[in-house]
Each structure stands twice: as C-alpha cells, then as structure tokens.
C-alpha cells in the first residue's frame, strides 16, 4: 500500500492559484527566450504588445542572426567577417570557436569538391591551429580524412558533412556573440522547465497529484491511483 499523500485536482488547482506570479516576470521570461534564440521580429512585436523592454538592443539580434544564417548556409568566411565587424575580440579570445569555424570552412570546401583548395587550406590555415593547440589535432585529422574518400558522405566521418554540424557550429557562434554582449548564452525558459520536471520527480516520491506530463500544453493529468 502506498504511503504517499494523495492530492486531488481541486485542491491542487487551489494551491496553484495561491501562488502569485507577476505578469511582468512571465513576459520577461518570454522576451528573454525570443531575444536569446534570435527571433527578432517576434521580439519586436512582443515588445509593442506587452510593453516588455528587451534587455538588449534589438538591432544586435539582427546582426547575430545574420552571422548564424551565414554559418548555416555554409558561408563561413562571410560569417567570420561579420563576427569581426561586430566585435573583433570574439575570435581573438575564443580559439576553439575560431578553430571550429575554420574546420567548417574546410568541410564546405570538401562538400563543394574543391579538393585542391581544401588541401591548401588545410595546410595553410588548419595545420597551424594544431601546432598552436595540440587539442585540435584529432579533429583536424578527422576532417582531413574526408579527403581520402570517394564517397565522402558514407565515409567514417561523413557526419561532419551533415547539416547538424553546421547547426552545431552556428549555435557555438551564437553563444559566443551573446557572451560578448554580456548576455546569457542560454534562454532561461528551458532550464525552468528542467526544474519543473525535477521538482515533479521529487514530489512523485512523496505524493500523488495532478502532474504535468505534456510540457507543450501544460495540461494537468488526473493522478493515477
């Protein structure tokens, strides 16, 4: 027999209503999400509708998104130049990010079949990064290994050519720009949801209550007795 406390729906909802959350705080949470993820139009609309001021100049979001888009569409050099215009310190103080951008550039050259150019770039640009930081060597080897395969996509390191690799690099760029703007690199909302799940799991050990299982609807489920 369960020793857990039983809380019925009515009681639970009453308790939830007793918790006062300021509307402004909720709005700021949403604004924080829109700004961090770079939804500039939505952020602007939301600003007009809710009167919530973003904690960052919205124009910088447009710049940041332009950089992100450049990486996602494979224009790495363009992205590098845009980052340097935005703030020349970012790539000078993030060797890992700079390396990943260079690596991405090599990947794009290989994708386009520009083998000679790729080889030259690997020698001229990537090899010195390995000398400066031996930690990068393994990744350089993996990337250069792509050149050895006829069917690159099905080669052991074929996943480097996936879109997911571009997205990975792009989000690294996004985070670095945000940090340089003294902004958190992750939105607060996902961590709040993680805390919700953790709290519910802890509570499960002690009580039976209407749980939220579907985070997208936040519907309170009937407790299973």
């Amino acid at each position: 027999m369960s020793t857990r406390k039983m809380i019925i729906r009515d009681e639970w909802e009453r308790k939830l209503k007793e918790v006062k959350i300021r509307k402004e705080d909720m709005n700021r949470l949403i604004m924080n999400f829109l700004v961090t993820e770079g939804y500039v139009d939505a952020a602007d609309k939301f600003r007009l509708e809710s009167g919530t001021q973003p904690d960052i100049d919205l124009a910088t979001i447009t710049d940041r998104m332009a950089v992100k888009m450049a990486v996602q569409s494979g224009n790495v050099q363009d992205a590098i130049e845009k980052i340097n215009d935005l703030n020349p310190e970012i790539l000078d103080t993030n060797p890992e990010l700079y390396f990943h951008l260079q690596q991405q550039k090599l990947i794009e050259l290989i994708r386009m079949g520009k083998i000679e150019e790729a080889l030259e770039f690997a020698q001229e640009e990537l090899a010195p990064r390995g000398e400066e930081n031996p930690g990068f060597l393994e990744e350089i080897e993996k990337t250069v290994a792509l050149l050895a395969f006829e069917d690159v996509k099905n080669s052991p390191y074929g996943e480097l050519l996936d879109m997911s690799q571009r997205v990975k690099t792009a989000s690294e760029v996004n985070a670095a720009i945000l940090t340089s703007q003294s902004h958190e690199k992750d939105p607060k909302l996902p961590s709040l949801l993680k805390m919700l799940i953790w709290a519910q799991n802890r509570l499960d050990e002690k009580a039976i209550y209407p749980r939220i299982n579907d985070l997208s609807t936040a519907k309170l489920e009937e407790p299973a007795v």
Binding site: I80, P88, E131, E132
Partner: peptide
C-alpha cells in the same frame, strides 16, 4: 585593412 584584420583575428601565425 579589412582583409588584414580578418586574416589576423584569432590567427597567431
């Protein structure tokens, strides 16, 4: 100037 800047940022060599 711009090109030099873009070549040297992040690039010790």
């Amino acid at each position: 100037l711009r090109e030099i800047k873009n070549q040297i940022i992040g690039n010790r060599t």
